[in-house]
Design a protein around this nucleic acid. Structure first.
Length: 126
DNA sequence: CTTTTGACGCGTA
DNA sequence: CTACGCGCCAAAA
């Protein structure tokens, strides 16, 4: 077997992709799902929910399509997430939404894609 | 082995 | 602007 993400599980691919989001930028669940391929936005949400609390994955940079932070079961995590994003320079409007034109993640770089044989067919940003 | 349970997005009305 | 339905996977008990 290879070390490429090609044959990795869906969750593993999602985590790998989320891990590529640079500080100061945010991506949506649907965006990640589209890049992973054969995956829906909900899958990404499930993958985030399954993450351990002590993960290195920048889960806080993944928000919903409305530019808002998903309320999560309890609610304390959402506030923490906003604070982390603000600390990275992300700006929220009065409605608590992020402007994707300003902080949206364009996607992973091509070099990384080639390195991991990660090359879905229908990418809107390709 | 089965059942439960989650951080969603998009079209349509 | 709101409301509703549908699609889909993995881990834990």
């Amino acid at each position: 077997m290879t070390d490429t993400l090609e044959n990795a599980s869906t969750y593993q691919r999602i985590y790998a992709l989320v891990n590529r989001i640079p500080s100061g930028q945010v991506a949506t669940y649907g965006q990640i799902a589209a890049m992973v391929g054969s995956c829906t936005a909900r899958m990404v949400g499930y993958a985030m929910a399954a993450l351990p609390y002590d993960t290195d994955i920048p889960w806080q940079r993944v928000i919903n399509r409305q530019g808002k932070i998903s309320p999560r079961g309890g609610g304390d995590g959402a506030l923490k997430q906003r604070q982390l994003l603000e600390a990275e320079g992300i700006q929220f409007d009065t409605k608590g939404r992020v402007d994707f034109e300003q902080a949206g993640w364009p996607g992973p770089d091509w070099g990384w894609l080639a390195e991991n044989d990660f090359f879905p067919a229908d990418l809107p940003w390709a």
